[in-house]
Amino acid sequence: MIKIRGLNKWFGDLHVLKDIDMDVSPKEVVVVIGASGSGKSTLLRCLNFLEFAQKGHIYIDGVEANAKSRNLHTVRADVGMVFQHFNLFPHRTVMGNVIEGLTQVKKTPYKEAVEHGEDLLRKVGLSDKAYVYPAMLSGGQKQRVAIARALAMKPKIMLFDEPTSALDPELVGEVLQVMKNLAIEGMTMMVVSHEMGFAREVGDRVVYMDEGRIIEEGPPSEIYSNPKNERTKAFLGQIL
């Protein structure tokens, strides 16, 4: 589904991604962990072309895309993204947020888009909030709307950039539950998150990054219980 080869990214002099090679298979759930500044969010943002890598190749569903691709927006439409700070559109209702991509990008007729939007809101448990503005929602509700908004585009893969780290602890569960359901339904997902419970329950693979490199990867049970690399051990010791 996603193939990354020799990806390198610099912010000025700062080398943030170093020779990243990675594959994500269809229906796989990959959880990326690492300290802040390790490059994990940047990697995710490169996959949605919100950042552009200076070197290396990214293939989405077999097709290479980069800064020069002419139809970058159509590539992005196939890659759903959920942000740490939700980034809901404050001037649109919940329904408006969910159907924005449908009506504007896919040119779905309004009525059809709303019907689809209702299905999605039911799925994330927010049917009763369809015509409320984001300012009226809790953080957990906002993030669930953001997930529904991304799902509306029927993406081939969903990227989650620390989806629960801006939430109050009691609201984390409802968002993780929605994500778990997605994983069970067979959505291909790449999740930057330190939620170990989630990784253990639905993650197929955990990738540990440090200083722009992939240091270690493997099944969650192995990484969390039996890390081989010293740096992985030290990091897990800090967050557990």
Binding site: R76, V79, G80, L88, Q104, V105, R149, A150
Partner: peptide, 8 residues
């Protein structure tokens, strides 16, 4: 970014 990520 959210708008672009939807394919706009």
């Amino acid at each position: 970014e959210a708008a672009l990520s939807l394919g706009m």
